[in-house]
Simulated assay, not measured.
Amino acid sequence: MISVIVPAHNEKVNLEALLPKLSQLAAGFNVEVLVCLSKDNADDSQAISGFEMVKYLCCEKKGRAVQMNKGAALAKGEILVFLHADVKPPIDFFSDIKRTIENGNDAGFFSYKFDKESFFLNLNASFTSKESIFTGGGDQCLFIKKSVFETLGGFNEKQVLMEDFEFFKRMKTLQVPYRIVKNDLVVSSRKYQNNSYLRVNLTNFLLVLLFRLGLAPEKLKRLHNRLLRLPYQHKPQKI
């Protein structure tokens, strides 16, 4: 079984697009989808019905790491897939995951493109198909054997920002074999709707640099919120 874990905070609009797509792609595979709602989710996301494979979990504490860990703990699958609600999977999503694991990898990520055509966004996306300082970000959709995830201790719930990079750092330390699948996910560009391209990229670079230098998670989060205009718009994507 493959367990898709979707951390969500007021993502009903995106979930209404994502869940039918996952249901369609899951045909012929043994898949469950765990939508892990944040403690203060307020948009009635759990009212989306009609999908037997989907289960909703409500978290008692805040934080995306908390949400993903809860999903992982209750997942029945041997493979865990951590997918953001505003990221859309490609047609061969599940076969790519299955093939990657069967070929001797314990984990993997996907390359991606943005949902908006732009020279600069295309330039950003081009780096996701190869190893770079940004490898391991949540938009790349980590998939991993559940046994390996548990050996690594799951996501660090004290890492309130960049929990995905922190987890990937531990993966690298323990030399977990992984592969970047070159089959693009479609990632939302909503962050760029309220912030300029330069602002977002300089902020991302600064946060990654400070993370690598060991800046405390709470300070990273405060800096992120100070530099980028929030909230991002939650717009559905065409599939």
Rank of each mutant, 00 (worst) to 15 (best):
M1W: 04
M1L: 04
H9N: 01
N10G: 04
N10L: 03
N14A: 10
L15E: 08
L22V: 13
A26S: 15
A26T: 10
G28Q: 13
E32W: 12
V35S: 10
A42N: 13
D43E: 11
D44K: 14
S45V: 00
S45R: 09
S45P: 01
S49P: 00
F51I: 05
K55F: 00
Y56S: 03
K62S: 01
A65N: 13
V66N: 08
Q67Y: 06
M68R: 15
M68T: 15
G71D: 04
A72P: 08
A72K: 08
L74G: 00
A75R: 00
K76H: 13
E78N: 15
I79N: 07
V81W: 02
V81F: 11
H84C: 01
K88P: 00
P90Y: 12
P90K: 15
F93P: 02
I97P: 00
I97Y: 07
K98H: 13
R99M: 06
I101D: 03
I101R: 05
N103L: 05
N103D: 13
F110G: 13
S111G: 06
K113H: 10
K113R: 08
F114Y: 15
D115S: 09
D115H: 07
K116D: 03
E117N: 10
S118F: 03
S118T: 02
S118V: 00
F120S: 11
L121C: 09
L121T: 08
L123D: 09
A125T: 13
F127S: 07
T128G: 04
K130R: 12
E131S: 07
S132T: 15
S132R: 14
G136Y: 11
G136F: 09
Q140R: 14
L142S: 11
L142T: 10
E150R: 15
L152E: 10
G153C: 07
F155T: 10
E157A: 05
K158V: 00
K158C: 08
Q159C: 07
L161Q: 09
M162F: 06
E166T: 05
F167L: 15
F168I: 01
R170S: 05
M171R: 09
M171N: 08
K172C: 14
P177A: 06
P177F: 14
I180G: 01
I180N: 13
I180V: 10
K182T: 10
N183P: 04
D184T: 09
L185N: 06
S189P: 02
R190I: 02
K191R: 08
Y192G: 03
Y192H: 08
N194I: 05
N194V: 05
S196M: 06
V200K: 13
L202A: 06
T203K: 14
T203A: 03
N204R: 15
L209G: 05
F211L: 14
A216H: 13
P217Y: 10
K219I: 07
K219M: 11
L220C: 04
K221P: 01
R222C: 02
L223R: 02
L223T: 09
H224P: 00
N225M: 06
N225A: 07
L227W: 15
R229G: 00
L230E: 04
Y232S: 04
H234I: 10
K238G: 07
I239M: 12
